Amino acid sequence: MNLFRNKKEKERRVWPVAIKINNGITAWQARTAEWLNVRTVKFSRRQQLGFLIAVCLLLGGGSLYLLCKAIL
């Protein structure tokens, strides 16, 4: 009696469109990070912390809004 058989691993297909989307998102993230680094290089520690809190509140609030809108 074989309760736990070894299942053969399925072949994984590589989707060219998914790779292009992934590369595009990664490039956009890198460009955005570089842009933010250039803009905030002269910020003091306090300004950096304030900016981080503002970005987190903005993006977190937007995510919460979308979540509530999807549920209700």
Rank of each mutant, 00 (worst) to 15 (best):
A18I: 02
K8P: 04
K20G: 06
F4V: 12
T40H: 11
V17C: 07
K42L: 01
L64P: 04
I19Q: 13
R46E: 15
I71V: 06
F51Q: 01
T32Q: 11
A54E: 12
N6K: 09
M1I: 11
L58V: 09
I25T: 11
R46F: 01
C68T: 11
R45Y: 06
L49I: 02
K20A: 15
L67Y: 09
I25L: 14
V14D: 14
L49E: 14
K8W: 05
K20M: 12
A54L: 01
V41W: 07
K42V: 04
G50Q: 06
R13A: 05
L72C: 07
V55R: 07
L72S: 12
L59R: 08
V14F: 07
N22T: 09
Q29C: 11
W28E: 15
T26I: 03
G50E: 12
K10C: 03
L59S: 14
T26R: 08
G60N: 02
G61I: 03
S44I: 00
S44V: 03
G62R: 04
L58N: 08
R31N: 15
L57C: 11
N2F: 02
L66C: 03
S63K: 06
I71A: 13
G24R: 00
E9I: 02
R12T: 07
G24E: 09
V14C: 05
M1S: 14
N6Q: 11
G50R: 02
N6E: 15
N6G: 07
I21T: 09
R39T: 10
F4L: 06
N2V: 07
V55D: 14
W35P: 00
E9N: 03
R39D: 10
V14I: 15
N6W: 07
T26S: 14
G60L: 01
L67M: 05
L67V: 09
F43Q: 13
K69L: 06
W28V: 01
G24H: 02
L72Q: 08
F43D: 15
W28P: 00
A33R: 04
R31Y: 13
I19G: 02
I19S: 09
K10D: 13
Q48L: 13
F43N: 10
G50W: 00
I71F: 00
I25Y: 11
R31V: 04
G61E: 09
T26M: 08
G50F: 03
V14H: 07
R13M: 11
A30E: 15
R12D: 13
A70G: 02
N23T: 05
S63I: 08
K8G: 07
I71G: 05
I71H: 00
A18M: 04
R12M: 13
G24L: 00
R31L: 05
Q47D: 13
T26E: 14
A70P: 00
R12S: 10
Q47W: 00
A18R: 03
K10T: 09
E34P: 00
V17T: 12
N37Q: 12
A70W: 03
E9S: 10
A33S: 13
V55L: 09
I19M: 05
V17I: 13
V55N: 04
N23C: 02
S63H: 08
L3V: 09
E34H: 01
Q47L: 03
V55P: 00
S63D: 11
F4T: 11
K8T: 12
P16L: 01
I71M: 05
P16Y: 01
N37S: 12
A70M: 04
L66I: 09
A54Y: 09
Y65G: 08
